[in-house]
Amino acid sequence: MKALTVRQPYADAIASGAKPIENRSKPLPVKYIGVPVLLHAGAAHHASGITAVDLARITGARTHTWPDTRSAILAVIRFGGFHLADSNAHWCCRPWGQVPTRVQPEVWHWEIREVTCLAEPVPASGALGFWTPDDDVLAAVQRQIDLERTTT
């Protein structure tokens, strides 16, 4: 199973189910559509400096309950597809979808269709792009998934 690192506060927004779009500069590799991918919260905060409170305001939420976890697996997600953002369609995937700019002329919206949040974050070092977690990380995630199945 592969993992994808996303910086905070966006990783928490995805894990909570609030953010169904991940903006990237490249299309989603087709082999990741419909398969489980681990959502990893990166060690660094997003370069924009946006906070969870800012995201709550942008999305119209009254409050946020995102814990700002870093360097850990937060959830198992499945992508449903992807599309190229259109600079003329400013409504596309609002409020999460970015639009192309002169600095970033191509923006791809990766559509997140399913999120299964873990009860406890699993500490892990990440990497850019898709990466393969260590066996002990995968085992810790699997234990939580198995425990969830037996309690529901």
Results as ranks from 00 to 15, higher is better:
residue 93 C to E: 08
residue 104 Q to Y: 03
residue 60 G to M: 11
residue 2 K to W: 07
residue 45 H to R: 15
residue 69 T to H: 09
residue 95 P to W: 09
residue 47 A to E: 10
residue 112 I to Y: 01
residue 145 I to F: 00
residue 86 D to N: 09
residue 50 I to Y: 06
residue 92 C to W: 02
residue 110 W to S: 00
residue 43 A to P: 00
residue 47 A to D: 10
residue 124 A to Q: 11
residue 31 K to R: 10
residue 146 D to S: 00
residue 4 L to S: 13
residue 75 A to L: 08
residue 152 T to N: 07
residue 145 I to P: 02
residue 85 A to R: 04
residue 79 F to P: 04
residue 103 V to L: 07
residue 38 L to V: 06
residue 34 G to V: 02
residue 63 T to I: 13
residue 148 E to F: 00
residue 96 W to Y: 09
residue 75 A to Y: 08
residue 93 C to Q: 05
residue 40 H to L: 06
residue 81 G to N: 09
residue 113 R to T: 07
residue 151 T to K: 01
residue 38 L to K: 03
residue 63 T to D: 15
residue 127 A to M: 08
residue 59 T to W: 11
residue 114 E to M: 07
residue 135 D to G: 11
residue 64 H to I: 14
residue 141 V to H: 12
residue 126 G to F: 10
residue 131 W to C: 13
residue 1 M to Y: 13
residue 129 G to Y: 01
residue 81 G to R: 09
residue 127 A to D: 11
residue 9 P to M: 02
residue 124 A to W: 09
residue 67 P to Q: 15
residue 134 D to E: 15
residue 133 P to K: 12
residue 8 Q to G: 07
residue 95 P to M: 09
residue 85 A to W: 02
residue 130 F to I: 08
residue 45 H to M: 14
residue 11 A to W: 06
residue 134 D to K: 15
residue 70 R to W: 10
residue 62 R to H: 12
residue 59 T to I: 10
residue 73 I to K: 06
residue 102 R to I: 06
residue 72 A to T: 10
residue 102 R to Y: 03
residue 11 A to N: 01
residue 37 V to L: 04
residue 8 Q to E: 14
residue 113 R to D: 05
residue 88 N to V: 07
residue 89 A to S: 05
residue 9 P to H: 04
residue 152 T to F: 02
residue 53 V to C: 05
residue 19 K to L: 01
residue 78 R to Q: 10
residue 32 Y to C: 06
residue 120 E to A: 14
residue 152 T to S: 07
residue 44 A to N: 11
residue 41 A to L: 11
residue 94 R to S: 05
residue 62 R to N: 14
residue 70 R to I: 13
residue 125 S to L: 10
residue 124 A to E: 12
residue 72 A to Q: 05
residue 144 Q to P: 04
residue 53 V to G: 04
residue 16 S to R: 01
residue 5 T to G: 07
residue 88 N to K: 11
residue 97 G to S: 08
residue 49 G to M: 01
residue 135 D to K: 15
residue 5 T to M: 10
residue 44 A to S: 14
residue 58 I to W: 12
residue 126 G to Q: 10
residue 17 G to T: 03
residue 40 H to Y: 04
residue 73 I to H: 03
residue 86 D to Q: 02
residue 29 P to M: 13
residue 105 P to K: 04
residue 122 V to D: 10
residue 55 L to T: 13
residue 125 S to C: 09
residue 65 T to C: 12
residue 107 V to Q: 00
residue 95 P to Y: 06
residue 118 L to C: 10
residue 108 W to L: 02
residue 76 V to F: 06
residue 48 S to F: 10
residue 104 Q to S: 03
residue 41 A to D: 07
residue 2 K to R: 13
residue 17 G to S: 01
residue 52 A to L: 05
residue 128 L to E: 03
residue 59 T to V: 12
residue 43 A to Y: 04
residue 27 P to Y: 10
residue 68 D to Q: 14
residue 76 V to A: 08
residue 29 P to Y: 08
residue 130 F to S: 11
residue 104 Q to C: 03
residue 28 L to P: 03
residue 6 V to P: 03
residue 100 P to V: 08
residue 63 T to A: 15
residue 118 L to D: 11
residue 73 I to A: 02
residue 145 I to G: 00
residue 74 L to A: 03
residue 70 R to T: 14
residue 9 P to Y: 04
residue 39 L to N: 00
residue 151 T to Y: 00
residue 1 M to G: 14
